[in-house]
């Protein structure tokens, strides 16, 4: 096993002090900014631990999109700090559970001296994963795990994203969003967005295609696409995201639905559910990945727009409330 170098120790200390900053800073705005930096440093440590796929996902999703959502939430929240507990330390379940978990760990660390006694982790599934890699249709082992060996998990995971968008729709106000921008029209940002967005879409396409043989894949590409969508909205404050059309709704479910269809097809041809026959695996994976990238990108843009209250929910479509001024 490799011994830790001073740079590893430095990185770990940096992570810990940033986490302390996120949680300890009195100013919530600064807390969120530090959280974004924390995400980027986490991405660094993923790279250090030979997990570049995770580094990409963390940087794009964890630090990028979620960081932006936090910032928007704080801006909208303004001076009114929403909190459920009236006092700082109230005896509610969160406190109790957290305390319980904390005690468990302290007792555990103390009693067992875990870290001196921690046995070297086993081989895990490294060998079986690489042995069958040539049958999976991709050469990036992580892509093989999430889209072939454990495709069922990923199928349900795409379901989670779809679910969050549904939840947002279910809680949208029934009247059409009236977004009146108080923000200044930013010429710089706008021309910057005009330049960069096509490149981001291109990069998303590259990430998607590259996922088969090097770090990348649907989630990273989807997050990149979502980022492009958000940037587009940032540069045009008055722009609303209209989800009423058929195309928008179709794109939203594309990932989830393509898994269903290909899974059913596999079963109809006598294979297991979500089994890709090895000569078709490459195409099957590329199909579900493309569809998922589209869905993830639209979902993330939609989430941003909903927090900004710039989303036109498809519900408006049903209520027949057409805009007749």
């Amino acid at each position: 096993m490799a011994a830790a170098t001073p740079s590893d120790i430095l990185l770990c200390l940096l992570i810990l002090s940033l986490a302390l900053g996120v949680l300890g800073d009195a100013n919530p705005f600064r807390g969120v900014i530090i959280f974004i930096v924390f995400g980027l440093v986490m991405a660094l440590s993923w790279t250090r631990l030979d997990a570049p796929d995770l580094a990409l996902a963390e940087a794009a999703l964890g630090a990028g999109v979620i960081g932006v959502l936090f910032l928007v939430a704080l801006r909208k929240q303004g001076e009114k700090d929403v909190s459920l507990a009236t006092q700082r330390l109230r005896l509610n379940s969160v406190t109790i559970i957290s305390g319980l978990l904390l005690i468990v760990f302290i007792v555990y660390l103390g009693a067992l001296g875990v870290f001196s006694a921690w046995k070297t982790p086993g081989k895990g599934l490294v060998e079986p994963v690489y042995e069958s890699l040539h049958l999976t249709g991709v050469s990036n082992p992580v892509t093989a795990v999430i889209l072939n060996y454990r495709a069922y998990d990923t199928f349900l995971e795409i379901g989670v994203l779809y679910l969050v968008m549904l939840s947002v729709f279910a809680l949208q106000p029934d009247e059409k969003a009236k977004f009146t921008s108080t923000e200044q029209y930013d010429r710089m940002l706008r021309s910057y967005a005009r330049g960069i967005v096509p490149f981001m879409v291109l990069a998303a396409g590259y990430l998607l295609w590259a996922g088969a043989f090097r770090p990348g894949g649907a989630f990273q590409a989807g997050a990149m696409l979502g980022g492009a969508g958000i940037l587009l909205h940032l540069s045009r404050p008055a722009m609303l995201l209209d989800m009423r059309g058929l195309v928008a709704r179709l794109s939203l479910v594309a990932g989830f639905f393509s898994f269903c269809i290909l899974g059913i097809l596999a079963m109809l041809y006598g294979f297991d559910f979500l089994q890709w026959p090895s000569h078709l695996a490459k195409h099957a994976i590329l199909t579900v990945e493309t569809a998922s990238t589209l869905s993830i990108g639209l979902t993330l843009t939609g989430l941003y727009a909903s927090v900004e209250r710039k989303l036109i929910s498809p519900a408006i479509f049903y209520s027949g409330e057409e805009d007749n001024p």
């Binding site: 379901g159 779809y162 549904l166 049903y318 209520s319």
Partner: peptide
């Protein structure tokens, strides 16, 4: 029949699918 409550239905069926999936699952991560 209209408005945001229509999204109760997709949510509801998704929960049902997940419940069935949970009762059938043989994998701790799943």
């Amino acid at each position: 029949r209209s408005g945001r409550l229509t999204f109760f239905w997709p949510l509801w069926f998704l929960v049902w699918a997940a419940l069935n999936g949970l009762f059938l699952s043989g994998d701790v991560f799943n």
